[in-house]
């Protein structure tokens, strides 16, 4: 099989699928031209991600990595979510085929983009150094991966 059982499980039964109307942070990354777009919605209370939802246009691994990323940051402090790496997502999914690794990069970027949006909405909080603005970079995601 192309994908591990875990990838197929998250693809078939995506966790935290949906949107949050009054989200504290929303991030959208990817490019329709490349075939994948992820949109992440965060609800944050007292520095804790209390809820997270996602919508994804993309292949099986794009949907599975989004789902896994939401599960890995839900209930966690913002500081911890900021440290989520694509590698951790891949490991949690028991691996991805080489040409699908970019999906996990996208999942990491979607979380970062949503957090960037959160910090932008809350200028009183100090934006962590090095947090990339994936959502508005305007670049072609394909060129990054």
């Amino acid at each position: 099989m192309l994908y591990s059982e875990k990838v197929m499980d998250h693809f078939r039964n995506p966790r935290n699928l949906g949107t949050i109307e009054d989200a504290d942070g929303v991030g959208e990354v990817g490019n329709a031209k490349c075939g994948d777009i992820m949109k992440m919605y965060l609800k944050i209370e007292d520095g804790i991600i209390t809820d997270v939802k996602f919508n994804t246009f993309g292949c099986g691994s794009a949907i599975a990595t989004s789902s896994m990323a939401t599960e890995m940051i839900k209930g966690k402090p913002v500081e911890e979510a900021l440290k989520l790496s694509n590698k951790a997502v891949v490991e949690a999914l028991d691996g991805l085929p080489a040409h699908k690794i970019h999906c996990s990069v996208l999942a990491e970027e979607a979380v970062k983009a949503a957090l960037f949006d959160y910090y932008t909405k809350h200028p009183e909080l100090k934006k962590p150094e090095g947090l990339p603005d994936c959502a508005t970079c305007g670049g072609d995601c394909c060129s990054c991966h």
Partner: peptide, 14 residues
């Protein structure tokens, strides 16, 4: 429009 082919194929396979 609005969907991606691989996920369509995987779900049809199911």
């Amino acid at each position: 429009e609005g969907i991606e082919g691989e996920s369509l194929l995987l779900l049809l396979d199911d």
